[in-house]
């Protein structure tokens, strides 16, 4: 571990100013991801500004009918919040399918969104990795890549985003509230995350020193009938091979509206817009679900060892939509 300074932030403004002014500084939430990276040498900040105690620990109603989730709300607290459970069950399900109870008890909302890929080469400082050391190459392209991306990857990076929560938030169309030295801005989560292109070192569009303070969920009534399914190698405490967050509004056997996002398949949580388009107005049948899934996955470009993710994603989309629509139509 490289020596670093530690500061407990006094308020948002000073925390943002401090990190912005120092290129080697980083924000520290619960540290469940960053501290691992410090140990492994993946991250080497010279200053940690601890924001975990800043007053963003509330879940509050928004004027337009939505809900604001503070950046430091713990994953466990968010998952059991009655409003979240009732109005956005996919958020609760996504959180509870991730990490372990101990980790969820400390991990924060913003920290969850900012966690970095679990690609083994990203974590092994002895290997080339464009995300860790831009320009050094991508070891996963020809190496171990069973867990890697099938959508939106580039030859510079085939890593996937590890968050479950972010997949649910992407399906919902959540908006991230950000504080920077130039003031506050709102970023739709779909725009927060990047595809790797030729700069995979950037997971998000955030500038150095910008701090997430909250995540706003839209009203979205159909989200009361939503869920999150995660397929993984072990029944708990494992990252997604494929996951699906979905909400659906069905009337008389026809899909009126639908939201679908995929996890474990791309550098960012993958909003399945093609599938959504194919489903709107379609009958709520397995065939339609399968066709929609295939429309989305037509653009999949699997690697040597992860072609299985294409049918797995298709089957998971179908199974998730089937469950939701069956529940809706008694």
């Amino acid at each position: 571990m490289i020596p670093f300074d530690y500061q407990r932030a006094e308020d948002t403004r000073s925390a943002v100013a401090t990190v912005t002014a120092r290129p080697g500084a980083a924000f520290l939430g619960a540290g469940t991801n960053l501290v691992d990276h410090l140990k492994l040498g993946v991250a080497a900040p010279d200053l940690l500004v601890d924001v975990s105690h800043l007053p963003f620990d509330m879940i509050e109603p928004l004027a337009g009918g939505g809900v604001r989730i503070g950046a430091t709300v713990r994953n466990s607290d968010l998952a059991v919040d009655p409003v979240i459970r009732q109005r956005y069950p996919m958020v609760s399900a996504a959180l509870l399918s991730g990490a372990s109870g101990q980790l969820r008890n400390v991990a924060t909302t913003a920290g969850n969104l900012m966690q970095r890929t679990r690609c083994p080469y990203f974590q092994d400082v002895t290997t080339p990795c464009n995300k860790r050391r831009p320009g050094s190459g991508c070891s996963a392209l020809e190496g171990y890549h069973r867990d890697h991306a099938i959508l939106g990857a580039s030859r510079h990076c085939v890593a996937v985003h590890p968050s479950d929560l972010a997949v649910a938030l992407t399906a919902l169309g959540a908006v991230v509230q950000v504080e920077g030295v130039k003031g506050a801005r709102s970023i739709p989560i779909i725009d927060l995350y990047r595809l790797p292109d030729d700069a995979p070192q950037h997971d998000t569009v955030l500038e150095h020193g910008e701090l997430i303070t909250a995540v706003d969920l839209p009203a979205l009534p159909m989200a009361t009938r939503s869920t999150y399914r995660k397929v993984r190698d072990r029944a708990s405490y494992a990252f997604a091979l494929v996951s699906v967050a979905a909400a659906v509004d069905v009337e008389r056997g026809t899909v009126r509206d639908v939201r679908v996002a995929l996890g474990g398949v791309a550098h960012k949580p993958w909003r399945a817009r093609r599938a959504e388009e194919a489903l709107r107005g379609a009958p709520a049948t397995d065939d339609a679900f399968r066709a929609a899934a295939e429309a989305e996955l037509a653009g999949a470009r699997p690697l040597r060892d992860n072609a299985f993710k294409v049918p797995m994603a298709r089957n998971t989309i179908v199974a998730t939509l089937r469950e939701l629509t069956r529940r809706e139509e008694p």
């Binding site: 999150y228 995660k230 397929v231 199974a319 469950e323």
Partner: peptide
């Protein structure tokens, strides 16, 4: 069920 607490399966298939 297969998949455990990740809500993965509802018994279909």
């Amino acid at each position: 069920l297969p998949g455990g607490v990740a809500n993965t399966t509802r018994g279909d298939g």
